[in-house]
Simulated assay, not measured.
Amino acid sequence: MDETRSAIGSDHLLEEARVDADVFALRPDYRALLIVAEGIEPGPSDAESERLLSEAEASARKALESRPVEELPHVAAWREAYRAFGAKPQRTRNSLEALTRRAESGLPRVNRLTDIYNAISVLHQIPLGGEDADRYAGAPRLLRASGDERFDTVAGGEPVEEHPELGEVVWTDDAGVTCRRWNWRQGRRTQLTNETTSALFILDVLAPVDDDALARASEQLLSHLTRLGPSVHTAQRLIAAD
């Protein structure tokens, strides 16, 4: 496994993060860029996050003028990846597809931290998850599920515990699943809140997105994260197959 660390910090979430070989066997082109941002000052949506969301919405509308969502190159690649582990992409859409579809009529306005990463995801056409790093129990790991792992979610407005399907690709920590079906649905336990001051972001990439495109997305994300307080500092790590 080729693992590239940034020179900034050595947070245990990054140092100990893993992607299992079984996942790379499904998609050897898969890369995960993990970014930790600490020292964030929480705040509501603001003029800059509104500007970024509006830019993302316009970008999505332009991209969909000539083709449907499912034919956008990276969306199509993720649909193929979902089929490889038995998921039905027309029923459980990857986060990029779900956000791009929603962008046509308007992305949600949540808080400035969530707004930023949702907008970057749509603008750069990359699935991008954001979670509260302080709520992690151990480091993140991407693996094929045994089916016994716990997933803390909501159904019918009530908290419930579910389990992934056997062989499903999931992000986990020591306490259970943090995101099901690679980048479909995040759990409640590690979700961002209006009090989050330390966040973990995961950018999931398949071909045809190359490393230069991934770098552009991460650079824009970092530039917006660093304006969320005078003490914000970040670290990142790229995990890829040999």
Rank of each mutant, 00 (worst) to 15 (best):
E3H: 02
T4K: 09
I8H: 15
G9N: 11
H12T: 11
L14C: 10
A17L: 14
V19E: 01
D22T: 11
G39H: 08
I40D: 11
P42L: 03
S45G: 04
E50N: 08
S54C: 09
A56L: 09
K62V: 15
H74Y: 00
F85H: 02
K88P: 00
Q90G: 10
R91A: 12
R91C: 05
L96T: 05
E97D: 02
E104S: 05
R109A: 13
R109P: 07
V110C: 05
T114P: 01
Y117Q: 09
Y117G: 05
I126V: 15
P127H: 03
L128N: 00
G129I: 11
E149R: 01
F151G: 02
T153N: 00
G157I: 12
P159Y: 00
V160R: 04
E162Y: 01
E162H: 09
E168C: 02
V170Q: 03
R181I: 11
W184V: 11
T190K: 06
T193P: 07
E195G: 08
T196S: 15
A199K: 08
A199Q: 12
D211V: 11
D212M: 11
L214G: 01
S218P: 05
S218L: 07
Q220I: 14
S223G: 03
S223A: 13
T226G: 08
T226K: 15
L228T: 15
G229R: 12
Q236H: 10
D242I: 03
